[in-house]
Amino acid sequence: MRRASFVAALIAMSLIVLLPFVWMVSLAFTPQEQAFGSLSVIPAQPTLDNFVTAFVDANLLRALANSAIVASVAVTANCVIAVLAGYAFAMLPFRGATPMFYALVATAAVPVSVTLIPLFLMIRGIPLTGGNDLFGAGGSGLLDTLAGVVLPYLVMPMNIFLARQFFSTAPVELAEAARIDGAGEWRIFTQIYLPLARPLVAVVAVFSFTGVWDDFLWPLVSTTSADTQTVQLALARFLASGNVQYGPLMAGAVLVTIPVLIVFLFNQRSFISGLSDGSLKG
């Protein structure tokens, strides 16, 4: 009884939430001229042309590869550095930790319109790259390289914040006991707290991946050549002002969603109820 109503609620919510996405999928299979022509979800004359167009015209494979590289680097860096930093803020109080932490979080409150150009100038001015001299002058730095695209994402302050919040609930007694046993800090982190943090690492991975995958503005200004295009830039090809190509756009958008979905599906397995079962056993 209760189970039935619970499942019904879940199905209903999922359907409502998925509705716009279902329409996207439908349009992806609808010929361009018929886009938004009917209320029916099943296209009258389904076609695969839009997917072909998306792959060929937008060079989607290259873009998917580029975005995958950039996102994977960002995920790895965030899962290591941001998680460690969050742990340090929560468990290893050091001088100036609190103000530094708040300053870090506060940077997220500055609109990107303001920070975009300074960031651009910095990536251009990285010394000894892209024809630059030791002082960062003369060349184009890391502009128009995947390294330049990924650099600002390596450590996202929000992830540090999240990790700190997560570790702040972890029992301190475990660390104290281990210290008495003579364990080093690194061992305490890797052997005791990291295993507890699987859901956290999963969230950081999912969010880092999604954030990098979705960003449009930074790749737009920092890359120019076709070789460095990311997925959102590839999709923009179908968004010409006043002449949107709905079919290929939706087909591309659906395709581009799939890798993120896979990353999510893989990581969501870490959200297993009862994982924290052993947390107090030490």
Partner: peptide, 26 residues
């Protein structure tokens, strides 16, 4: 459960520009 979790997470990952066309139409 993985299916439902993904379904509920999908809005967050679909391309905003693409899905905004759907919302405009809705």
């Amino acid at each position: 459960v993985g299916f439902f979790r993904s379904a509920l997470y999908i809005p967050h990952i679909v391309s905003l520009t693409a899905v905004s066309m759907i919302w405009l139409w809705m």
